[in-house]
Design a binder for these strands. Structure first.
Length: 429
RNA sequence: GGAGAGGUGUCUGAGUGGUCGAAAGAGCACGCCUGGAAAGUGUGUAUACGCCAAAAGUGUAUCGAGGGUUCGAAUCCCUCCCUCUCCGCCA
């Protein structure tokens, strides 16, 4: 297993110490002292390498000389130089070990540093401090007899949660009849829309290796959130982001290959350890769910523009489904470890009377590309880290939840027009 | 699961101890040739980390990973990982 090194960002930290500290504070980062520790270790690293390089250069030159002398038969002179070799060897070994352990320590600290938030990220710690960017659509007023989606699911025989418990456990629903068809319709609809927006579809492995987990930042940070297949040392993907983005691990793209735009449908598996209670009923929080993901690899100059485009795309889906939604700009404390700026899209669940997160669109800037070693050749012909972005477009369960709840009528549940060509039925009765 | 083969640069592929960061070809880039293209032809074409204000330059490391032998390792030895082929099983 090759070690994933993320040294690429060290020089940035060294040269922008104040800015790094300033940004980390917005993310409410608890160990700012790590920054100075990293800078100090990097200093030691460079010193040590300098010494090591010097000794190695001497030893290399001597070895070359010995070769020359041996060829011309001057054995005595060769032996004289050989006498020095032990000292070099010891020094090289010693300095090499030292360098390795410094690098390892540096590496361990570096992975503890979250990505720096963008300047537009609001300060804040709790979800309540997220900034509402916009709200769109009309929240339906339902009669008092309106049912939450889990009751609708059972009334119309769409989803069987108990059967899922029997065959697997809680959080693994069984979709039946029109419930199953609705899943398939949504997946096809989302993929078609993504394709129209220029994303090319990929179908992917649902299990990934350790290197992939590190590449997108799930490891080591969120190890406990992934299902792990110990026998083969593989992880079930928590999102298609992982296999899609890792397609570009260890890749140097040509400038004209950017932007890379991919979409993919996969089931997603999340252990969701520790989240139980009133808010996880029905489809609100699952261990397995379906999602269409969009991913872009772009030139850093355009990444924020692209983030807006992706946000617009996700919103267009919600508009077409006629679901009331709002867009949040996450505050520093609520953002994920690797993100520089995240928009969350939430739909209004009219029976539960609360907002449900259905998408999260993020710009990771170079956080992932550093780990992935994902670069492109810029106009000057030099390699440069690309920016990566991804977003859900969309995750199904909460869409289904709001769709069932908001569209319930006395006759049954009305399917949004855009979906009818996919479901081939207009009503769930 | 059993047996065998193998992992070299963007790719194919040579290389069994020094002159090897690595032949040759393909691809790609730029130039010449051409009315234009093809063909032909010339040149260039890995990455990271140091040193240097920077460019130029230069040092070090990297031939799956790690360790060992040696003055010197792509090449020899050990361990691990991965891929392929055949057999078995199988959607």
């Amino acid at each position: 297993m090759s070690k994933i090194k993320i040294m690429l960002q060290v020089s940035y930290i060294r040269e922008n110490r104040e800015h790094v500290l300033d940004r980390l504070a917005v993310k409410n980062f608890k160990q700012p002292e790590l920054v100075d520790e990293v800078i100090k270790l990097d200093e030691q690293r460079r010193q040590t390498q300098n010494m090591l390089d010097g000794v190695s250069a001497e030893a290399n030159a001597a070895a070359k000389q010995i070769g020359e002398l041996m060829r011309t038969g001057k054995r005595t002179e060769a032996d004289a130089i050989k006498a020095n070799s032990n000292t070099w060897k010891e020094d090289i070994k010693k300095l090499g070990d030292q360098l390795a352990s410094i690098e390892q320590e540096l590496q361990q600290k570096l992975v503890l540093l979250p990505n720096l938030p963008h300047t537009s990220v609001p300060k804040g710690i709790t979800p309540e401090e997220n900034e509402v960017v916009l709200e769109n659509g009309i929240r339906p007023e339902l009669p008092a007899t309106a049912l939450p989606h889990w009751e609708l699911a059972s009334k119309y025989n769409l989803i069987d949660f108990e059967l899922g418990v029997k065959i697997t456990g809680a959080g693994f629903p069984v979709y039946k009849g029109k419930g199953a068809k609705l899943q398939r319709a949504l997946i096809a609809f989302f993929l078609d829309e993504a394709e129209k927006a220029g994303y090319s579809e990929v179908m992917l492995p649902l299990l990934v290796n350790e290197a992939s987990g590190f590449g997108t930042g799930q490891l080591p940070d969120k190890e406990g959130q992934m299902y792990y297949v110990g026998l083969d040392n593989l992880y079930l993907i928590p999102t298609a982001e992982v296999p899609i983005t890792n397609l570009y691990r260890d890749v140097i793209l040509k400038a004209d290959e950017l932007p890379v735009k991919n979409c993919g449908y996969t089931p997603c598996f999340r252990r969701e350890a520790g989240s139980y209670g009133a808010h996880v009923r029905g489809l609100n929080r699952l261990h397995q769910f379906d999602k269409v993901e969009i991913v872009q690899v772009v030139n850093p100059e355009t990444s924020y523009e692209v983030l807006e485009q992706m946000s617009t795309h996700v919103q267009s889906l919600l508009q077409k489904l006629q679901l009331p939604y709002r867009v949040l700009r996450l505050c520093g404390g609520d953002m994920s470890f690797g993100s520089a700026l995240t928009y969350d899209m939430e739909t209004w669940s009219a029976a539960q009377k609360r907002w449900l997160e259905v998408s999260s669109v993020s710009n990771f800037e170079t956080f992932q590309s550093t780990r992935l070693k994902l670069r492109f050749r810029n106009a000057e012909g030099k390699t440069q880290l690309a920016h990566t972005l991804n977003g859900s477009a969309l995750a199904l369960p909460r869409i289904v939840a709001t769709l069932l709840e908001n569209n319930q009528t006395e006759r049954g549940i009305k399917i949004p027009e855009v979906l009818v060509p996919y479901t081939k039925f207009e009503w769930i009765e």
